[in-house]
Design a protein around this nucleic acid. Structure first.
Lengths: 146, 146
DNA sequence: CCTAATTAGGACCATTTAGTCTTGATTATA
DNA sequence: TATAATCAAGACTAAATGGTCCTAATTAGG
């Protein structure tokens, strides 16, 4: 698994929020039901995102979650960093501490640019871009087709 | 983490075996001490590799582990597949079951070629190639520099 | 002010992964 | 044949991850 289960959930939830394009807040309950994610688990996971300033939240009736910034100014990379941290983008593929250009592991020369590309994949994807296509039915965020 | 801890250990052990380039067998104890890997844990992990036909093993004095084939005909990909399976190379980055070209997740178009590149990185690295450079001191397999 | 809807947060349980330990089977060698 | 070295295998413990549940705090609306 490239991303933790929590992180997969978080990215899908962020994309759902962006695709919903609602003026107010969206309840965790709605997101969890729409995406087939355990509600309590998602609720705890998104706390990382509000703590990181990616989401905002409001309690009470008509409360819920919202993007802290416009969807086109938030990237999937930010979501990944908030939940899983930066290890995937920085650590040695063989787990050697201090693996770098000076004291490389045998895969360092190949993995270093590769992990940069993986990061660029997430950094280049704004929630806005992708959400448009989710709304158009080109992409899916849950088990069912559309 | 791209690879499980067990898998990281397995790859390093395979590279150690290749770099040792011994005519006979190499004991798990020697490998675990050289690489700083818990011995019992490594012993169990390499059973996956012997079961997969990547390693052979022999019990008794002067027994141990050896590569089943010449080092230049075994790839790191085979080690990864034997321990972690193929999920990394086949599954959706957002964890959606059945994510494919017909019913893609929002990152499918980017992740599909990326995971193929990751796989190619492992498939293109034979134990023989890399072991040579480990022997030359260009690469390290453990915490210490050489 | 009361009620219901909602997030926040912590305690808790379940599953997977990481790691240890012991016992048994095998085998070279004295 | 006795001994010691080694892998094989399973039971066990520990830690991380995934997931549930309950209580408190907050807030809109009657």
């Amino acid at each position: 698994m490239l991303l933790s289960q929590r992180c997969e959930y978080a990215v899908r939830a962020a994309l759902y929020l962006a695709a919903a394009d609602r003026t107010g807040y969206v309840a965790v309950r709605e997101i969890s039901e729409a995406l087939g994610i355990p509600r309590s688990f998602l609720a705890k996971t998104v706390q990382d995102l509000t703590a990181a300033g990616v989401f905002t939240s409001m309690r009470g009736p008509s409360g819920g979650l919202a993007l802290a910034r416009p969807a086109h100014r938030t990237t999937i990379e930010e979501v990944v960093l908030a939940v899983d941290g930066s290890a995937l983008f920085t650590e040695c593929v063989l787990g050697l501490p201090g693996c770098d250009d000076l004291r490389p592991c045998p895969l360092h020369a190949q993995w270093r640019p590769m992990r940069a590309r993986v990061r660029a994949m997430f950094a280049g994807a704004t929630l806005g871009d992708t959400a448009v296509q989710v709304r158009d039915g080109k992409f899916r965020l849950a088990l069912e087709a559309g």
